[in-house]
Design a protein around this nucleic acid. Sequence first.
RNA 1: GCGGAUGGCCGGAUGGCCGCGCCUCCCCCGGGUUUUCCUGGCGGGGGUGAGGAAAGUCCGGGCUCCACGGAGGCACGGUGCCGGGUAACGCCCGGCGAGGGACGAGGCAGGGGCGACUCUGGCCCGGAACCUUAGGGAAAGCGCCACAGAGAGAAGACCGCCGGGAUCUCCCCGGCAAGGGUGAAAGGGUGGGGUAAGAGCCCACCGCGCCCCCGGUAACGGGGGUGGCACGGCAAGCCCCACCGGGAGCAAGGUCAGAUAGGGAUGACAGGGCACCAGCCCUGGACCACCUCCGGUCCGUCAUCCGGGUAGACCGCACGAGGCCGCGGGCGACCGUGGUUCCAGAUGAAUGGCCAUCUCCGGCCUGGCCUUCGGGCGGGGCCGGGACAGAACCCGGCUUACAGGCCAUCCGCGCUU
Length: 142
Amino acid sequence: MPEAPDPGIQIPGAPESAVAAKIEILKRRADFLACARARRAHASGLILQARRREEGEGADEEADRAIRVGFTCSKKVGKAVARNRAKRRLREVARVVLPRAGQPGWDYVLIGRSEVTASRPFASLIGDLEAALDRIHNGKAK
RNA sequence: GCGGAUGGCCGGAUGGCCGCGCCUCCCCCGGGUUUUCCUGGCGGGGGUGAGGAAAGUCCGGGCUCCACGGAGGCACGGUGCCGGGUAACGCCCGGCGAGGGACGAGGCAGGGGCGACUCUGGCCCGGAACCUUAGGGAAAGCGCCACAGAGAGAAGACCGCCGGGAUCUCCCCGGCAAGGGUGAAAGGGUGGGGUAAGAGCCCACCGCGCCCCCGGUAACGGGGGUGGCACGGCAAGCCCCACCGGGAGCAAGGUCAGAUAGGGAUGACAGGGCACCAGCCCUGGACCACCUCCGGUCCGUCAUCCGGGUAGACCGCACGAGGCCGCGGGCGACCGUGGUUCCAGAUGAAUGGCCAUCUCCGGCCUGGCCUUCGGGCGGGGCCGGGACAGAACCCGGCUUACAGGCCAUCCGCGCUU
C-alpha cells in the first residue's frame, strides 16, 4: 500500500484553482509594514496578517494577480535554531494551503508564536491557517 | 572482567512522496544584436548543500579603508620560569621549579610487652600512576597583614620555667623565647651538648645566603667550602624591570542606477608693503591625542565635474597558513616532500514537511537460562525519547554548552592459563 497517499494531508502541486496564481515571497521591509497595518487574525499556532494590494501596484497584470507571502519570527520565538524551525514550518504550511485557499492580489504575513509554532502537530497548523484565512476573507477580523 | 585517571574520535542509518538555495546542461518563448555573444522567463535532467562547537566575540592574523611626517619625553593597554613550534598569539609541545598525592617502617611522639620486639600515619621526612600552577623583581621604595592573641616586623612575658627576696599557698624583683595557648603566619627545623632555667650559645644533619667546581643551550640540578641565623608574607595594592602594541571594521571597501542642494574633487585668483612688472618680505585662527623642536593640512571668491540620506543591484565572495592518502625527520608541538581532490555561499537569510524500516537510550509487561539468592545474561511486546545547537569575509587558538557511544595508554583490584 505504499502508493496510497494519506488522505488527511493534501498533496500540493495540483492546485484546485482553475488559473493558478503565482506565489511570491515578500522581501521588502515596506511590504511587511504595510501588511502589519491591515487586517489580522490570531490562531493557536500562528498569527496571520493580510492586505489586498491596490490596482496597478505591480509591474503588469500577472504581477497584480500574484499571491505574496512573508514570514516573521522575532527573538520572542527563541534562539536561532528555534526561529529557523518555526519559519520553515510556516513556509511549508503556506505552500500547502495558499494555492487553494489564498486569494489573488493579496499579501499575507505569517507570524510564528513562541513554543507553539515549532511543536504543534502539522495537521493542526494547517487547520489554523485555513481558519485564519476564512476569518480574514469572510468574517470580521479586526 | 570491574573500577579509576588521561588523551583522541564520532555526533543516528537507509529508503519513499512533495518542496528549497546555488552551480551546470537541454528544450521553448522574449530582449540587446549583422553574428559570435550577453541577458530575462516557464519547464526538465544532473551535481551540490551547516558545526564540533557554526555559539560567546575573549586573544592572534589575512584582507579593506582611514590616520599615514620625523625625533625625544610623558602616559595608556597587554604579556611575564626556560627552550622549542608557528604567519602570529595571552595558543601548542617538551623541560624546570613549587604544591597535592595512595603508600612507607628513616627520625620523633604515644601505646603494648619482663624482654627481643611490636602497634598507631599524630608531627617531620621520602614519595607511584597522575593532577594543579598569572611561576620576573620583596637585601629600590611606599603601603597592608582583618579576627584572635601578651606580642604581627628594626619583636614580645598571658599561662609557664628558673634564681633571689618577702609580711612565706595568693606578693615583689630579675633571668629565659625551650613548652602551652592564639593565629593564614610567632623572627629557621630535628636531635645532642650546655645551663639555675634557657637560647645557633656550641655541635651534627636538613634548610637558607655567599663563593668555587661539575652537568645542562637554558630554567635549573648535583657536589665541596664558608657564614652565621640574618633576609616573614602579599607585586590578582602602588611600584620597578624586560618585551610587545596606530585606529576602525565586509553595514570594511568598490562599481552602477536614480526626482530636489546646505557636501566633495580639480583648476585659477588672497590682502598689505617695497612708486610700477618680475621678485622679496609681513599677517590671524583651527587640526595632526598630550608636551618640546622641526614639518604638514584647512579656513575667502569664481568656474567645471562628481554626488549624500534612503541598507536598491552587482563586485568583494570562497583555491585556502585548504582537505585526504603516503614517505622522510623530530620525544613532541610540528616541519619537509610526493600524489590526489575542489568540498555551502544565503542576504525577510536556502538543507525542510510527512511517512516507513532499522539502530541507540529509558520505563512498563511477559516468559527463558545461570546463581554464591545480592543479582547476572541473552529474547519478545507496548509506550516515550535521540542532546547542545544554524555558516553570514576567511583562517589559527581559547572559553563555554552537550543525549549517547567508540578507541588507545596508564594505575588499582579480581579471575584464568
